[in-house]
Design a protein around this nucleic acid. Structure first.
Length: 565
RNA sequence: UGCCCCGUCGUCUAAUGGCAAGACAGCAGACUCUGGAUCUGCUUAUCGAGGUUCGAAUCCUUGCGGGGCAGCCA
């Protein structure tokens, strides 16, 4: 079996050993369709589907918690179904909706009224707030608390029929206005909302609150372990109270710490602000920590699942270093991504001793990590492009790349030497003149000659051009949700989170990239043909993540040292 | 301030009364036709104080710190 464990799985194992639920394991993932799913939901999906999968006969329901028509939309339902499918790897054969249980819930509310455990309260929202008490003071009982069962039944039926305006009355549980747990101070079960529901239409004008509805949904579905986040911990006594009062099947609620990620925000409210404030192009902007955003960026579901397993599950509030997520993608893509050569910021190089109109095709490994990936032929010629960064007229110490009079290897090709630097009138470097050593062709007689560096290149004559989008972290600060300069988290937004590059020079093979295909651009990073804007023949690439860049680190550190001195 | 929860390397997670371990990050080195990958090594932690015990990260008390709760949101 799986050695993977955490306190939730410990509880499930314990319940299994005591036969508490007749050997069943049944979890659920209960999103509210009021926004797109983000990576925090991936943690929950992974937990719930994971536990179900690990146990023979285990089940996990996808159930929409659609009890608030004011915030919920069909668009969100559709996106969530797609995202759950993508992350969990399961085709969801059955999608459940809390709103399908509205009749049953209403019946149970009537039962509670009959038992004298619920009452219709005529207080308005302000009055209810005023009589709830505070954190340190008990609340006051509602004057309507002791209405007769008959009167309550009558009012409840009329609430349901639509006789009363929004907010004029509520159905409340009769528990304890003096409870130190505020959730137990006669919580509201139904509120009047004359608003069409995305699935129920106008069938209802009273809607159940989360506290009233959630345990019932779990109970109806036979869920054994209802796993939710820490902020519901104080609600568990209420979850238990309703089920107990009704005398119906009673699942176990378990709370775990929600995911927080450094350099990003992970709340639907803030993500909505980013979308509505046009800080990003939409819910699926590749910089968004949404499932849709990561998918478009080029992350794999495997990488996200690996990440979810590495972060573990506990009750401790924490902020996971986003570097672990980035590591997870690299880990996956290193093994699976097809290699390619792409020059993002081109500098032309003329190989002066190469035949004028000559060209050849050089075999190159598709993936050094995977021999079965084979090789491909990359065209080479007298004029090539290299990365501007790979040449320095005055090389800093430890610079292993090209500089005047120095040699580098062109990956899968020849060793070249820089003979001359051509500049324009303004002194900008526009071209390099180099010579090559024909003996040093990869696999050739002098191929083993050692040079300090190897750089990537693209044949000028064969290169295709493409747009490449470099994405960086969306936020400047590790704790992105804390107020930044503007006093809100929006002040932390990284103005350079997107760099648009046009006219990048890519090896011709990339012309036929299908949308969604991932590549490693050697020495640069992992890239994905955009699923919306890219087409075979006119590719557009998104940077998924950079490669680990030791040189950049050395250089950065050098700069810092210099600045300090 | 009432109630609830949580305090272990920089960051996460483990150790379930018996040698504080792993991952990421960092640092140093080896290797390399990707300054990638890989490999090796190194640095760094039980919030404090009492108590129980042969023995405490773990149990108890208490202090401190962090988080949550006063929507007819979830």
């Amino acid at each position: 079996m799986n050695e993977k464990t955490d306190f939730v799985r410990d509880i499930v194992a314990e319940d299994l050993s005591t036969n508490r639920f007749q050997g069943r394991v049944h979890t659920r993932f209960p999103p509210e369709p009021n926004g797109y799913l983000h990576i925090g939901h991936a943690k929950s999906i992974n937990l719930n589907y994971g536990i179900a999968q690990e146990n023979p006969g285990g089940l996990c329901n996808l159930r929409f918690d659609d009890t608030n028509p004011e915030k919920e939309e069909q668009e969100y339902v559709d996106s969530i179904i797609e995202d759950v499918k993508w992350i969990s790897g399961h085709d969801q054969q059955k999608v459940l909706f809390a709103s399908d249980y509205f009749d049953q819930m209403y019946q149970w509310a009537v039962d509670l009224v009959k038992k004298g455990k619920a009452y219709v309260c005529d207080l308005n929202a302000d009055q209810i707030r005023e009589t709830r008490g505070t954190l340190t003071e008990p609340g006051k009982e509602s004057p309507y608390r002791n209405r007769s069962v008959e009167e309550n039944l009558d009012f409840l039926a009329r609430m349901r029929k639509g006789e009363f305006p929004d907010g004029s009355r509520t159905l409340r549980a009769k528990i304890d206005m003096a409870s130190p747990n505020i959730n137990l101070r006669d919580p509201i079960m139904y509120r009047i909302v004359h608003e069409p529901h995305h699935r129920q239409g106008d069938a209802w004008c009273i809607y159940p609150t989360y506290d009233w509805a959630h345990g019932l949904e779990d109970s109806i579905e036979g869920v054994t372990h209802s796993i939710c986040t820490l902020e519901f911990e104080n609600h568990r006594p209420l979850y238990d109270w309703f089920l107990e009062a009704l005398g119906i099947y009673h699942p176990q609620q378990i709370e775990f710490a929600r995911l927080n990620l450094s350099y990003t925000v992970l709340s639907k409210r803030r993500l909505l602000q980013l979308v509505q404030g046009k800080h990003v192009s939409g819910w699926d902007d590749p910089r968004m920590p949404t499932i849709a955003g990561y998918r478009r960026r080029g992350y794999t579901p495997e990488a996200i699942r690996t990440f979810c397993e590495k972060i573990g599950v506990s009750k401790k509030d924490s902020i996971i270093d986003v570097a672990l997520l980035e590591w997870s993608v690299r880990e996956d893509l290193n093994k699976h991504a097809q290699r390619a050569m792409a020059v993002l910021n081109p500098l032309k190089v003329v190989i002066t001793n190469y035949p004028e109109n000559g060209s050849e095709e050089l075999p190159s490994l598709n993936n050094p990590e995977d021999a079965s990936a084979g090789t491909r032929l990359v065209p080479f010629g007298r004029e090539i492009y290299i990365e501007q960064d790979d040449f320095r007229e005055v090389p800093p110490p430890k610079y292993h790349r090209l500089s005047p009079g120095k040699e580098v290897r062109l990956r899968a090709a020849y060793i070249i030497r820089c003979e001359e630097v051509i500049k324009d009138g303004a002194g900008n470097i526009v071209e390099l003149h180099c010579t090559y050593d024909p003996e040093t062709r990869s696999g050739g007689p002098a191929a083993n000659r050692k040079v300090k560096g190897t750089i990537h290149w693209v044949s000028a004559r064969h290169a295709i051009e493409a747009e490449v989008r470099l994405y960086d972290r969306l936020f400047l600060t590790a704790d992105a949700s804390e107020g930044g300069e503007a006093g809100s988290f929006l002040g932390n937004v990284n103005p350079d989170s997107l760099t648009l590059l046009k006219g990048c020079k890519l090896e011709p093979m990339l012309l036929s990239a299908m949308p969604g295909m991932r590549f490693q651009f050697e020495r640069v990073g992992y890239f994905c043909a955009d699923i919306k804007d890219s087409n075979p023949g006119a590719p557009v690439f998104n940077r998924i993540v950079t490669l680990k860049d030791t040189w950049a680190k050395i250089e950065l550190r050098g700069g810092e040292t210099a600045a300090r001195e």
